Amino acid sequence: MKILITGRNGQLGSELYDLKEAYPHHQMVFVDREEMDLSNPEQIIEVLTVEKPEIIISAGAYTAVDKAESDQELCDAVNHIAVKTIGAWAADNNAKVIHISTDYVFDGTSETPLKETDAPDPINVYGLTKLHGEQALRASGANHVIIRTAWVYSTYGANFVKTMMRLMNEREEIGVVADQIGTPTYARDLAQAIMQIIEAPEFVQGVYHYSNEGKISWHDFAMAVKELNGFSTKVNAIGSNAFPTPAKRPNFSLLDKSKIKEVYQVAVPDWKDSLKEMLAKL
């Protein structure tokens, strides 16, 4: 099967690229901004028409959450219009789309793990554009799977784990937000889940949630990074109001993974096991 993956140089795209050798029966074509600029609908159509993929993994996105507040037009072009364009092409050409979305489509006020059926209500521009992308893909008529994920990290790219390691190397004391709750997602695990969906006997379309198992705060996550690396840095628990950012963050991002486990038999590793695995690779 021919699979086209956007966001080649992102965390998820890089992990999917690493898995390529394990799936020699698929022809996997990777594109990044240079080959397919997601802010350019004409170029998207052009590349898809030349490549003619049977499956499109829509992993590329505008993910600079704070910058999005002042860069709304580009953020919307990449996270919404590009997805709409991909969906329209896929519907016309009988291709399937696996699109990666985010916990940021929710407002973060829930107290129970978020289900796919819960009503989205984004509190920042990034979340709103990602929601508009989801809605456009559903409306396109393309056969699709939308995977909402959260707190993504990897050995590739910039992410929380790498930032914590750098700060703990440089400083004796740091403060990390303790009132935002969720679970991290090791991009490698998400990449494997996506390939499992592609390999499944039946492509069951709809929205799915995926992150690693567990329930922690960013402070808990930082403490695990400290402990597993043997740092002596003091890690203080702070409230999110002590660390104001241009974009509001959801306070609760815990995703319910029951549906993806049931429909696609995806095994979801515990967050700490995945963190250990990532640090060992690093």
Rank of each mutant, 00 (worst) to 15 (best):
T117I: 09
S110W: 12
W89Y: 10
I146A: 05
A90N: 05
V97E: 01
I123V: 10
H132T: 09
G127E: 10
T117F: 07
L114P: 05
I100G: 09
G133K: 03
T117E: 06
E134L: 11
P120V: 07
T109E: 09
I100F: 14
K96G: 00
S101A: 02
N93Y: 15
F106M: 07
A95L: 08
N143V: 07
A88Y: 12
Q135P: 10
T129P: 01
T102R: 00
V145Q: 05
S140Y: 13
I98Q: 02
T109G: 06
L137Q: 06
G141F: 06
N94R: 14
E116M: 03
W89P: 02
E111A: 06
T112R: 15
K96A: 04
T109Q: 13
V105I: 14
L114S: 07
A91M: 08
W89E: 08
D107P: 06
G108H: 08
V105Q: 04
R138Y: 11
A119P: 09
I123N: 01
N93K: 11
S140N: 05
P113V: 08
A95F: 06
V125H: 05
R138E: 13
H144W: 07
A142H: 15
K130T: 02
Y126V: 00
S110M: 10
N93F: 15
V145S: 03
I123W: 06
G87E: 10
